[in-house]
Design a protein around this nucleic acid. Structure first.
Lengths: 124, 124
DNA sequence: AATAGGCATCGACGATTGTCGATGTTTTGA
DNA sequence: TCAAAACATCGACAATCGTCGATGCCTATT
């Protein structure tokens, strides 16, 4: 009866025996490391309560943008911390930064959140 | 979580002062700390490449359930690490764990990813 | 009962993260 | 030209995270 259990040694699941826990594998349809890393970067940006609240504030005024000066107060955070979170959201492609004069205005990148949500419903 | 936050219903742009960066605030329509923390917990679970790959494998399985014994090999992780990630995904309400005999089978909670995606499209 | 195997938990380690004070950069106004 | 204000960046610190070896628990088999 050849192999009884699937063991990680190099062999790629020869044949599913009766006492095997389940069907060994299904081809190569899973996320590779690169795709997973890119997706994780964007979800990680959403994995902080204060960043979610920043998004909530910014997206609550969709037509207009939100300037940094209005964020520290409702969040209870200091200005450098807010800038730090904003940078992470920009690098994740979720927020857009536009500086006018002394002030910096942030807005949600159109379709960014929707595309992230779609990648969830489709299959990670 | 029906956050249909449509804030600017009344006055439309009440002519902000020249030296004000923008409209000061819009009441209390943003995510509070508790809601943000709960949402962040679930997004944080998706903020790791290996957990995304685990989700990919589990949701790609025909039988819709995958046993732990098949995960360490394609991920290149040791068994305790895989168990750790699985626990995080279960606590986030994304995966379901069912033990049959010696083996433990994991499956995606129906609608879990879709509801997370929906919370994205409908403003965090 | 004793053994073997699958999986969860524990303890530890380096790496990453969130926060803040201090400082730098840029623009506006006097 | 200088001063003030808004925002970004830097450096530091505690906390959390990802990973793994060792170990324990549970189940099925002998």
């Amino acid at each position: 009866m050849s192999t009884a259990t699937v063991n990680p040694a190099g062999g790629t699941s020869p044949a599913p025996a009766a006492d095997a826990c389940c069907t060994p594998s299904q081809g190569e349809a899973i996320l590779n490391a690169g795709q997973a890393e890119a997706l994780a970067l964007r979800f990680k940006a959403l994995g902080d309560p204060n960043r979610l609240r920043i998004l909530s504030i910014v997206s609550a005024s969709e037509s207009a943008e939100t300037c940094v000066c209005d964020l520290p107060e409702p969040l209870g955070l200091k200005q450098p911390t807010v800038s730090h979170h904003l940078k992470i959201l920009v690098e994740a492609g979720i927020l857009h930064r536009e500086k006018r004069g002394v002030w910096a205005y942030y807005s949600v990148v159109p379709g960014a959140l929707e595309s992230l949500g779609a990648s969830l419903a489709a299959k990670p």
